[in-house]
Amino acid sequence: MNQKLQITSEQVGDSLVLVPLDRVDSSVARDFEDFLDARMQEGHTKLIVDFSKLGFISSAGMRVLLINAKKLKPSGGRLVLCKMRAGIREIFSISGFDHIIKICDSREEALAAM
């Protein structure tokens, strides 16, 4: 059983698309935060998180996204989420996160939103 954060990244234009795999729960939330911090330290300010390979995210993972979306704002950067399955989208909606972080249906829509 893999207890480590699994995530891939891909540069598309001037955006960095991150694809977390499997799950982001409290056991890997700190690693997820460190990973995002490292990308920002490298100078990436346009981040897209593609949820298509994510089976589960808990409030710990959601909070990391929220914190980093806020961090990017002053520098004109942005964090956009895309390709959520309906169950996860619903959870972002009931927790009110969708009012603060942009959520797109497709990666193309997310790239266009940057």
Binding site: S59, A60, R63, L66, I67, K70, I91, I94, S95, G96
Partner: peptide, 22 residues
Amino acid sequence: EIRRLARERRSGGLGVHIIRRL
């Protein structure tokens, strides 16, 4: 208050909020 959670490092009761809503 979701916007406050972005500023604060503590968990902020989000887990309990989610449990109650779900």
